[in-house]
Computed example of a mutant assay.
Amino acid sequence: MATAYGGPEVLSVIDVPVRDPGPGEVRVAVRAAGVNPIDYKLYGGLFGSDPANLPMRLGVEAAGVVTAVGPDATGPAGPVAVGDEVIAWRAPGAYAAEVVVPAAAVAPKPAALSWAEAGGLPTAGATAVHTLEAVGLRGAETVLVHGAAGGVGHLAVQLAVARGATVVGTASPAKHGVLRELGAIPVAYGPGLADRVRAVAPRGVDAAVDTVGTDEAVDVSVETVPDRSRIATIAAFERGAQAGVRLLGGAPGADPGTRIREAARTRLTEEAAAGRLRVLVARTYPLREAAAAHREVVAGHTTGKVVLLA
Protein backbone atom coordinates (compact mmCIF):
# COMPACT_ATOMS: atom_id res chain seq x y z
CA MET A 1 0.00 0.00 0.00
CA ALA A 2 0.93 3.64 -0.35
CA THR A 3 0.90 5.20 3.12
CA ALA A 4 1.51 8.74 1.81
CA TYR A 5 1.82 10.64 -1.46
CA GLY A 6 5.26 10.75 -3.01
CA GLY A 7 7.73 8.38 -4.65
CA PRO A 8 8.18 4.61 -4.31
CA GLU A 9 9.57 5.09 -0.81
CA VAL A 10 5.99 5.54 0.48
CA LEU A 11 5.10 1.92 -0.31
CA SER A 12 4.73 -0.56 2.54
CA VAL A 13 3.42 -4.08 3.06
CA ILE A 14 0.55 -3.95 5.55
CA ASP A 15 -1.41 -6.87 7.03
CA VAL A 16 -5.16 -6.42 6.62
CA PRO A 17 -7.97 -8.99 6.90
CA VAL A 18 -9.50 -10.28 3.66
CA ARG A 19 -13.29 -10.51 3.69
CA ASP A 20 -15.36 -13.34 2.31
CA PRO A 21 -16.80 -12.82 -1.17
CA GLY A 22 -20.35 -11.61 -1.39
CA PRO A 23 -22.97 -12.31 -4.07
CA GLY A 24 -21.37 -12.30 -7.51
CA GLU A 25 -17.85 -12.10 -6.10
CA VAL A 26 -14.83 -14.38 -5.80
CA ARG A 27 -11.69 -14.39 -3.67
CA VAL A 28 -8.42 -14.99 -5.49
CA ALA A 29 -5.06 -16.02 -4.04
CA VAL A 30 -2.75 -13.80 -6.07
CA ARG A 31 0.24 -15.44 -7.71
CA ALA A 32 1.26 -12.47 -9.87
CA ALA A 33 0.25 -8.81 -10.24
CA GLY A 34 1.32 -6.59 -13.11
CA VAL A 35 2.94 -3.20 -12.48
CA ASN A 36 1.51 -0.36 -14.54
CA PRO A 37 2.21 3.39 -14.77
CA ILE A 38 -1.22 4.17 -13.31
CA ASP A 39 -0.09 2.54 -10.06
CA TYR A 40 2.68 5.02 -9.30
CA LYS A 41 0.80 7.95 -10.80
CA LEU A 42 -1.96 7.48 -8.23
CA TYR A 43 0.22 7.79 -5.14
CA GLY A 44 2.44 10.27 -6.98
CA GLY A 45 -0.45 12.73 -6.79
CA LEU A 46 -1.17 13.04 -10.51
CA PHE A 47 -4.89 12.62 -9.85
CA GLY A 48 -4.98 14.53 -6.56
CA SER A 49 -3.62 14.08 -3.07
CA ASP A 50 -6.65 13.73 -0.81
CA PRO A 51 -5.45 12.33 2.56
CA ALA A 52 -8.78 10.53 2.88
CA ASN A 53 -7.61 8.11 0.17
CA LEU A 54 -4.70 6.89 2.30
CA PRO A 55 -3.53 4.25 2.87
CA MET A 56 -4.02 3.45 -0.81
CA ARG A 57 -4.27 -0.08 -2.13
CA LEU A 58 -2.54 -0.49 -5.49
CA GLY A 59 -2.75 -2.72 -8.53
CA VAL A 60 -5.39 -3.34 -11.17
CA GLU A 61 -4.54 -6.77 -12.60
CA ALA A 62 -3.65 -10.17 -11.19
CA ALA A 63 -3.42 -13.86 -11.93
CA GLY A 64 -4.12 -16.46 -9.29
CA VAL A 65 -6.25 -19.26 -7.91
CA VAL A 66 -9.85 -18.89 -6.75
CA THR A 67 -10.10 -19.71 -3.03
CA ALA A 68 -13.74 -18.83 -2.33
CA VAL A 69 -16.88 -17.93 -4.28
CA GLY A 70 -19.99 -16.06 -3.34
CA PRO A 71 -23.52 -16.88 -4.52
CA ASP A 72 -24.09 -16.52 -8.26
CA ALA A 73 -20.37 -16.13 -9.01
CA THR A 74 -20.43 -16.23 -12.79
CA GLY A 75 -17.72 -14.84 -15.02
CA PRO A 76 -17.48 -14.27 -18.78
CA ALA A 77 -16.66 -17.96 -19.29
CA GLY A 78 -19.40 -19.25 -16.98
CA PRO A 79 -19.65 -20.21 -13.28
CA VAL A 80 -16.44 -19.73 -11.28
CA ALA A 81 -15.33 -22.48 -8.89
CA VAL A 82 -12.79 -22.83 -6.10
CA GLY A 83 -9.49 -23.98 -7.58
CA ASP A 84 -9.95 -22.22 -10.93
CA GLU A 85 -6.81 -20.55 -12.26
CA VAL A 86 -7.84 -17.11 -13.45
CA ILE A 87 -6.75 -13.71 -14.68
CA ALA A 88 -8.48 -10.89 -12.81
CA TRP A 89 -9.04 -7.50 -14.43
CA ARG A 90 -10.08 -5.00 -13.36
CA ALA A 91 -8.90 -5.99 -9.88
CA PRO A 92 -8.43 -2.98 -7.57
CA GLY A 93 -5.94 -3.73 -4.83
CA ALA A 94 -4.22 -6.51 -6.77
CA TYR A 95 -0.93 -5.94 -4.93
CA ALA A 96 -1.96 -8.44 -2.28
CA ALA A 97 -1.78 -12.04 -1.16
CA GLU A 98 -5.55 -12.31 -1.70
CA VAL A 99 -8.08 -10.04 -3.32
CA VAL A 100 -11.87 -10.06 -3.63
CA VAL A 101 -13.20 -9.08 -7.04
CA PRO A 102 -16.44 -9.38 -9.02
CA ALA A 103 -16.73 -12.74 -10.73
CA ALA A 104 -17.33 -10.78 -13.94
CA ALA A 105 -13.72 -9.58 -13.67
CA VAL A 106 -12.13 -13.03 -13.88
CA ALA A 107 -11.38 -15.14 -16.93
CA PRO A 108 -9.66 -18.53 -17.21
CA LYS A 109 -5.86 -18.31 -17.27
CA PRO A 110 -4.46 -19.89 -20.44
CA ALA A 111 -2.34 -22.89 -19.49
CA ALA A 112 0.29 -21.72 -21.97
CA LEU A 113 1.02 -18.62 -19.85
CA SER A 114 3.18 -18.57 -16.75
CA TRP A 115 1.80 -16.79 -13.71
CA ALA A 116 3.99 -13.77 -14.43
CA GLU A 117 2.91 -13.61 -18.07
CA ALA A 118 -0.76 -13.93 -17.13
CA GLY A 119 -0.48 -11.25 -14.46
CA GLY A 120 1.07 -8.84 -16.93
CA LEU A 121 -1.31 -9.37 -19.84
CA PRO A 122 -4.69 -7.67 -19.32
CA THR A 123 -3.97 -3.98 -18.71
CA ALA A 124 -1.20 -3.57 -21.26
CA GLY A 125 -3.00 -5.83 -23.72
CA ALA A 126 -6.29 -3.96 -23.49
CA THR A 127 -4.45 -0.66 -23.84
CA ALA A 128 -2.65 -1.95 -26.93
CA VAL A 129 -5.93 -3.00 -28.52
CA HIS A 130 -7.41 0.42 -27.73
CA THR A 131 -4.52 2.27 -29.39
CA LEU A 132 -4.88 0.34 -32.62
CA GLU A 133 -8.65 0.81 -32.68
CA ALA A 134 -8.26 4.52 -31.94
CA VAL A 135 -5.95 5.12 -34.89
CA GLY A 136 -8.17 3.03 -37.16
CA LEU A 137 -5.46 0.61 -38.24
CA ARG A 138 -6.67 -1.30 -41.27
CA GLY A 139 -4.93 -4.27 -42.84
CA ALA A 140 -1.82 -3.64 -44.89
CA GLU A 141 -0.99 -0.17 -43.56
CA THR A 142 2.14 1.12 -41.90
CA VAL A 143 2.00 2.06 -38.21
CA LEU A 144 4.74 3.71 -36.15
CA VAL A 145 4.89 2.48 -32.53
CA HIS A 146 6.97 4.54 -30.11
CA GLY A 147 8.34 2.52 -27.20
CA ALA A 148 7.75 -0.67 -29.16
CA ALA A 149 9.59 -2.92 -26.70
CA GLY A 150 7.74 -1.66 -23.61
CA GLY A 151 4.81 -3.19 -21.75
CA VAL A 152 2.11 -1.83 -24.07
CA GLY A 153 4.35 -1.41 -27.10
CA HIS A 154 5.43 -5.03 -27.53
CA LEU A 155 1.82 -6.18 -27.45
CA ALA A 156 0.70 -3.45 -29.86
CA VAL A 157 3.43 -4.58 -32.27
CA GLN A 158 2.20 -8.17 -32.27
CA LEU A 159 -1.47 -7.23 -32.59
CA ALA A 160 -0.72 -4.87 -35.48
CA VAL A 161 1.39 -7.48 -37.28
CA ALA A 162 -1.48 -9.96 -36.86
CA ARG A 163 -3.73 -7.46 -38.67
CA GLY A 164 -1.35 -7.48 -41.61
CA ALA A 165 0.26 -4.13 -40.87
CA THR A 166 3.86 -3.12 -41.36
CA VAL A 167 5.13 -1.97 -37.98
CA VAL A 168 7.99 0.47 -37.49
CA GLY A 169 9.00 0.40 -33.84
CA THR A 170 11.24 2.77 -31.92
CA ALA A 171 13.54 1.40 -29.24
CA SER A 172 17.14 1.50 -28.10
CA PRO A 173 19.47 -0.56 -30.34
CA ALA A 174 19.85 -3.25 -27.66
CA LYS A 175 16.16 -4.09 -28.10
CA HIS A 176 16.11 -4.26 -31.88
CA GLY A 177 16.58 -8.01 -31.96
CA VAL A 178 13.48 -8.51 -29.85
CA LEU A 179 11.46 -6.23 -32.11
CA ARG A 180 12.54 -8.17 -35.19
CA GLU A 181 11.42 -11.38 -33.51
CA LEU A 182 8.01 -9.80 -32.92
CA GLY A 183 7.75 -8.77 -36.58
CA ALA A 184 8.60 -5.06 -36.39
CA ILE A 185 11.12 -2.96 -38.28
CA PRO A 186 13.21 -1.39 -35.49
CA VAL A 187 14.58 2.15 -35.53
CA ALA A 188 16.58 3.91 -32.83
CA TYR A 189 15.06 6.96 -31.18
CA GLY A 190 17.05 10.17 -30.89
CA PRO A 191 18.08 12.95 -33.30
CA GLY A 192 17.19 12.13 -36.91
CA LEU A 193 14.35 9.77 -35.98
CA ALA A 194 11.93 11.12 -38.59
CA ASP A 195 14.49 10.54 -41.35
CA ARG A 196 15.12 6.98 -40.16
CA VAL A 197 11.38 6.30 -40.14
CA ARG A 198 11.03 7.61 -43.69
CA ALA A 199 13.96 5.47 -44.82
CA VAL A 200 12.32 2.23 -43.68
CA ALA A 201 8.80 3.33 -44.70
CA PRO A 202 9.29 4.95 -48.13
CA ARG A 203 5.57 4.71 -48.90
CA GLY A 204 4.74 6.72 -45.83
CA VAL A 205 3.28 6.12 -42.37
CA ASP A 206 -0.48 5.80 -42.01
CA ALA A 207 -0.82 5.89 -38.22
CA ALA A 208 1.24 6.28 -35.05
CA VAL A 209 0.95 5.09 -31.46
CA ASP A 210 2.94 6.80 -28.69
CA THR A 211 3.45 4.76 -25.51
CA VAL A 212 6.37 6.75 -24.07
CA GLY A 213 5.12 10.34 -23.84
CA THR A 214 8.17 12.23 -25.10
CA ASP A 215 8.07 15.39 -27.19
CA GLU A 216 10.08 13.51 -29.80
CA ALA A 217 7.42 10.82 -30.10
CA VAL A 218 4.67 13.36 -30.65
CA ASP A 219 6.69 15.58 -32.97
CA VAL A 220 7.91 12.74 -35.18
CA SER A 221 4.41 11.28 -35.35
CA VAL A 222 2.98 14.61 -36.48
CA GLU A 223 5.80 15.01 -39.00
CA THR A 224 5.36 11.57 -40.58
CA VAL A 225 1.61 10.90 -40.34
CA PRO A 226 -0.56 13.17 -42.54
CA ASP A 227 -3.79 12.73 -40.55
CA ARG A 228 -3.49 13.76 -36.89
CA SER A 229 -6.67 11.88 -36.02
CA ARG A 230 -4.66 8.72 -36.70
CA ILE A 231 -2.07 9.53 -34.04
CA ALA A 232 -2.71 8.44 -30.45
CA THR A 233 -0.78 8.84 -27.21
CA ILE A 234 -1.28 7.12 -23.86
CA ALA A 235 1.30 9.27 -22.06
CA ALA A 236 1.96 12.72 -23.60
CA PHE A 237 -1.33 14.29 -22.61
CA GLU A 238 -0.28 17.95 -22.47
CA ARG A 239 1.93 17.81 -25.54
CA GLY A 240 -0.55 15.61 -27.39
CA ALA A 241 -3.40 18.02 -26.71
CA GLN A 242 -1.31 20.88 -28.06
CA ALA A 243 -0.57 18.88 -31.20
CA GLY A 244 -4.19 17.87 -31.73
CA VAL A 245 -3.69 14.10 -31.54
CA ARG A 246 -5.88 11.53 -29.83
CA LEU A 247 -5.46 11.17 -26.04
CA LEU A 248 -6.19 7.73 -24.59
CA GLY A 249 -6.45 6.57 -20.99
CA GLY A 250 -7.49 7.95 -17.63
CA ALA A 251 -6.23 11.53 -17.83
CA PRO A 252 -8.73 14.42 -17.94
CA GLY A 253 -10.06 14.81 -21.46
CA ALA A 254 -8.69 11.47 -22.65
CA ASP A 255 -10.78 8.70 -24.17
CA PRO A 256 -10.85 5.81 -21.64
CA GLY A 257 -12.00 3.36 -24.29
CA THR A 258 -13.90 1.39 -21.67
CA ARG A 259 -15.95 -0.76 -24.05
CA ILE A 260 -13.01 -1.49 -26.33
CA ARG A 261 -10.77 -2.47 -23.43
CA GLU A 262 -13.37 -4.63 -21.75
CA ALA A 263 -14.18 -6.41 -25.00
CA ALA A 264 -10.49 -7.01 -25.66
CA ARG A 265 -10.04 -9.32 -22.69
CA THR A 266 -11.49 -12.44 -24.30
CA ARG A 267 -9.56 -11.91 -27.51
CA LEU A 268 -6.29 -11.39 -25.65
CA THR A 269 -6.59 -14.59 -23.65
CA GLU A 270 -7.56 -16.54 -26.76
CA GLU A 271 -4.57 -15.21 -28.71
CA ALA A 272 -2.22 -15.95 -25.82
CA ALA A 273 -3.65 -19.45 -25.34
CA ALA A 274 -3.08 -20.19 -29.02
CA GLY A 275 0.52 -18.98 -28.83
CA ARG A 276 -0.11 -16.07 -31.17
CA LEU A 277 0.56 -13.40 -28.52
CA ARG A 278 3.69 -13.36 -26.36
CA VAL A 279 3.85 -11.52 -23.06
CA LEU A 280 7.43 -10.50 -22.44
CA VAL A 281 8.32 -10.24 -18.75
CA ALA A 282 11.21 -7.88 -18.15
CA ARG A 283 11.65 -8.83 -14.50
CA THR A 284 9.75 -10.14 -11.50
CA TYR A 285 9.95 -8.91 -7.92
CA PRO A 286 8.54 -10.27 -4.67
CA LEU A 287 5.53 -8.30 -3.50
CA ARG A 288 7.54 -6.91 -0.58
CA GLU A 289 9.90 -5.29 -3.11
CA ALA A 290 7.18 -3.32 -4.90
CA ALA A 291 9.12 -0.08 -4.39
CA ALA A 292 12.08 -1.46 -6.34
CA ALA A 293 9.74 -2.64 -9.09
CA HIS A 294 8.24 0.83 -9.34
CA ARG A 295 11.65 2.44 -9.59
CA GLU A 296 12.44 0.23 -12.56
CA VAL A 297 9.17 1.02 -14.31
CA VAL A 298 9.52 4.76 -13.65
CA ALA A 299 12.98 4.64 -15.26
CA GLY A 300 11.22 3.55 -18.44
CA HIS A 301 13.75 1.23 -20.06
CA THR A 302 12.15 -2.18 -19.61
CA THR A 303 11.53 -4.75 -22.30
CA GLY A 304 8.01 -5.98 -21.66
CA LYS A 305 6.28 -6.01 -18.29
CA VAL A 306 7.47 -5.82 -14.70
CA VAL A 307 5.48 -8.17 -12.49
CA LEU A 308 5.13 -8.70 -8.73
CA LEU A 309 4.98 -12.27 -7.42
CA ALA A 310 2.94 -12.85 -4.26
Rank of each mutant, 00 (worst) to 15 (best):
G240V: 03
A292M: 09
G119R: 01
E216A: 13
G244Q: 09
P110W: 02
A97S: 15
G244N: 09
G45N: 10
G44C: 07
L247G: 05
V222G: 02
V220F: 01
T127R: 03
G59D: 04
L11S: 03
P21W: 07
D84R: 05
D206A: 14
A201E: 00
E238R: 14
A299F: 10
Q158K: 07
E296Y: 02
Q242W: 11
G169K: 00
R259G: 14
R288C: 12
V212M: 12
E133N: 11
A254H: 07
G213D: 08
K41C: 08
E9R: 13
L247M: 12
A232Y: 00
A160L: 05
V143H: 00
V66F: 04
A148F: 04
Y5A: 06
R283M: 07
G22H: 08
G153M: 03
I185Y: 01
V307A: 05
P55M: 10
V306T: 13
D195C: 10
R246F: 09
R196I: 05
R283K: 15
D219K: 05
K41I: 10
V82W: 09
T266M: 13
R261E: 05
I231L: 03
A160V: 04
A264F: 01
P17Y: 11
A254T: 10
T214V: 11
A208M: 04
E98S: 12
R138L: 14
L137V: 08
A310I: 07
E271V: 13
V13M: 13
A94L: 05
D20A: 15
T224R: 03
G244A: 10
H146C: 08
A96C: 09
A126M: 13
F237G: 05
P226F: 03
A293W: 00
P110F: 03
A112C: 09
A96S: 13
N53M: 15
R138C: 12
R283Y: 05
M56K: 13
A188M: 08
V100C: 04
V129F: 03
G213I: 06
A118C: 08
V218G: 00
A208N: 02
A292R: 13
P108H: 08
T74K: 12
V18Y: 05
A263P: 01
Y189M: 11
T211M: 06
T3D: 13
A274D: 13
V30N: 02
I234D: 01
A293C: 07
A81W: 08
G250N: 15
A77H: 14
S221D: 04
L132Q: 03
G153Y: 00
E85C: 07
P226A: 09
V161E: 03
R239K: 15
P186T: 07
R198G: 06
G136A: 12
A73L: 07
L159I: 10
A134H: 02
A156M: 04
A134D: 10
A162N: 11
L308R: 02
G48M: 11
A116I: 06
L58H: 01
A199F: 02
R90K: 14
P173K: 09
G44F: 04
V220C: 04
S172V: 12
G169I: 02
D210W: 03
P79Y: 11
A236I: 06
A107P: 01
V297P: 00
V82K: 10
V80K: 01
P173A: 11
Q242E: 15
G7H: 04
A251L: 14
P286L: 12
G34D: 04
E289P: 02
G59R: 00
T269Q: 14
G204R: 06
P79T: 12
A199Q: 12
A134K: 12
A263E: 14
V205H: 01
G22L: 11
